[in-house]
């Protein structure tokens, strides 16, 4: 079944908040207060999901599963037992779909201290690998899989970042998770206009968007941005979000990544997001 046909079955979730093991109480509190429509659960099989997530699900709350432990760019990482475990866990929390940064979540073996988030190499070979990985995970679990553009300062390869993800989605016939904060960070690092490449990007494949705060820092006379999940998105993050929210016809969910902020601070950011898209 094609992505267009599958879109019929992808629910509209609304505005959600991210969470992960050890993230604190803010997601649960905002969910209980009805300030968010769903919770995106960042999880790996080593730690599983937090009790607060189970409580959210038991109370009828909706979720998505954000993986933190698969190297989609590495064919050798396609472990059927891992995929089956993720499928079972995602089903247990009623996840609407799977999503997560498409690149590498670790270097070397699955072991403590090997976890880090590496962007993919921006070239055709890598795009083919990631697309194959997305198809494999979708087929194995039965869940829709949305690859996400990761954060990063170092981008290697001949392709542009957005061309790369457009190719991944086309080859995998999948939707996309566009993280506009990650995109803004990457464009700064590349020295490009934040909206560069958006004019040719297949926004009809964007099913989910992430918005988050970032922190600026200076290095060698240049200003870079760091993905802090803080309370204040960069101005270019907002402008990217506004543009994408207006122009992505199949957008089903916006996740505000602010899980470690005080509830009132996170709630204020969520309100600002709802003013743009709800």
């Amino acid at each position: 079944m094609s992505f267009v046909a599958r879109l019929e079955r992808i629910p509209r979730l609304g505005v959600g908040i991210s969470t992960e093991f050890g993230a604190g109480d803010t997601p649960a509190l905002l969910s209980a207060q009805g300030l968010v429509d769903f919770v995106e659960v960042g999880a790996d099989l080593e730690r599983g999901v937090a009790p607060a997530v189970r409580a959210h699900v038991a109370g009828g709350g909706r979720t998505t599963w954000h993986f933190l432990d698969i190297n989609l760019e590495d064919p050798a990482d396609r472990d059927a037992a891992w995929a089956d475990g993720v499928g079972r866990s995602a089903e247990a929390i009623g996840a609407a779909w799977l999503c997560g940064d498409a690149g590498r979540w670790r270097i070397g073996p699955r072991d403590r201290g090997h976890g880090l988030l590496l962007p993919p190499i921006l070239c055709e070979e890598s795009a083919v690998r990631v697309a194959d990985g997305v198809r494999w995970l979708r087929d194995r679990t039965g869940f829709e899989v949305l690859p996400e553009n990761p954060p990063g300062q170092v981008w290697i390869g001949p392709w542009d970042l957005l061309r790369y993800f457009a190719e991944v989605a086309e080859r995998a016939d999948s939707g996309l998770l566009l993280d506009v904060a990650h995109l803004a960070i990457a464009r700064r690092a590349m020295g490009l206009d934040p909206a560069s490449g958006l004019e040719d990007f297949p926004l009809e494949r964007v099913v989910e968007v992430h918005v988050a705060g970032s922190a600026l820092f200076e290095l060698g006379g240049r200003w870079f941005a760091e993905d802090t999940h803080g309370p204040e998105p960069l101005p270019e993050t907002w402008s990217l979000f506004s543009r994408v929210a207006r122009a992505a016809p199949n957008l089903r969910a916006v996740v505000v990544e602010c899980e470690r902020n005080p509830p009132a601070v996170a709630a204020a950011l969520i309100r600002r997001v709802r003013e743009v898209w709800s």
Partner: peptide, 10 residues
């Protein structure tokens, strides 16, 4: 890659 970017994954 911009030479400064290597140090920006601080």
């Amino acid at each position: 890659v911009d030479a400064n970017a290597w140090g920006a994954e601080r």
